[in-house]
């Protein structure tokens, strides 16, 4: 994937800030076919998978205000929505989710933080692609397949640490801004 021409972060921000339907169409064209393939790994039929894809893509539009490019890559944010949807359908009750850290639209995102997170995410994607097919499949099954515990040894060598530190910076910056806002 070419990160210069293919930029879901920009599309997502256009959806969030301008309610841009063309940008949403691009997100749909990129993610919907991938979501369908991923969801079918969990045993869903093609029709069930497409129902989930519809729900997830509509949630992406409806929840866009909650997207913060400094605190989640677009694909990770969509992954969370999709997995929650799969789990809720499976259990017929919604799963407990962490309290949101909110600052909807109030602070301009730190461009360098956003760019760095994008680059680290691209790095993670490359590292995942570089794994052998068996290992990659273990990870895909754990993240999209049956909802059972899996030892994911294959993930040990992936550059998750850098993303973790990057996200931590994004959260700290947000905490700082929230404090400034609440200062009398």
């Amino acid at each position: 994937m070419d990160d210069d021409t293919d930029n879901p972060t920009k599309w997502m921000l256009a959806v969030r800030d301008k309610r841009d339907r063309v940008a949403f169409g691009r997100l749909f064209d990129h993610y919907a076919p991938r979501l369908k393939a991923a969801v079918r790994r969990g045993g869903a039929s093609a029709a069930e998978a497409e129902d989930i894809v519809q729900d997830v893509m509509l949630s992406v539009w409806q929840k866009a205000a909650q997207f913060d490019p400094a605190r989640a890559p677009v694909s990770g944010w969509i992954y969370r929505i999709a997995r929650n949807r799969q789990i809720d359908l499976h259990r017929r009750k919604s799963r407990p989710e962490p309290e949101p850290l909110d600052l909807e639209g109030e602070a301009p995102p730190d461009a360098s933080q956003v760019l760095a997170l994008e680059q680290e995410t691209a790095e993670l994607r490359r590292a995942l692609q570089a794994l052998g097919p068996d290992q990659r499949q273990i990870i895909e099954t754990a993240y999209f397949g049956e909802l059972t515990h899996a030892e994911i040894q294959a993930a040990t060598g992936l550059p998750l640490g850098t993303i973790k530190s990057r996200l931590r910076l994004g959260i700290e910056r947000l905490r700082h801004e929230l404090k400034e806002l609440r200062r009398p």
Partner: peptide, 14 residues
């Protein structure tokens, strides 16, 4: 979740 996202980016497409 970013790893889940990376797996999503590599899935299919179908």
């Amino acid at each position: 979740e970013a790893l889940g996202g990376a797996a999503l980016d590599g899935a299919g497409p179908e």
